[in-house]
């Protein structure tokens, strides 16, 4: 359940930061699939997720992810730790 909620939050944050429809985001979505997703907007996305959920994501991991699924897992882990 926590995973689903994390996914929803991440998809909403992606939608807001990158101005895309959150419904088009899946766990398999990669940065290359979404227009406008680059290193600067990725850091904005991370800040947006942290702000929404009041969590801190680990810097060393959050910039080295393969897809949205891995980001969601990282968010879920940070939420359960918090």
């Amino acid at each position: 359940m926590a995973d689903e909620e994390s996914f929803r939050e991440v998809a909403q944050a992606i939608g807001e930061t990158l101005m895309v429809d959150p419904a088009t985001i899946t766990r398999a979505t990669t940065a290359d699939d979404v227009n406008g997703w680059d290193s600067v907007t990725h850091s904005m996305l991370v800040m947006e997720i942290e702000r929404r959920l009041g969590i801190q994501l680990p810097m060393d991991k959050v910039f080295d992810l393969a897809d949205v699924g891995e980001l969601v897992d990282l968010v879920a882990a940070a939420r359960s730790a918090g």
């Binding site: 290359d32 699939d33 227009n35 406008g36 997703w37 680059d38």
Partner: peptide, 23 residues
């Protein structure tokens, strides 16, 4: 199309160090 977009973004990033925002 999706595979082509990924390949183009990866190639431009590898050669130019540029992330294409829109393909």
């Amino acid at each position: 199309a999706a595979e082509l977009r990924r390949a183009v973004k990866a190639r431009v990033f590898d050669v130019l160090g540029l992330t294409l925002q829109h393909v």
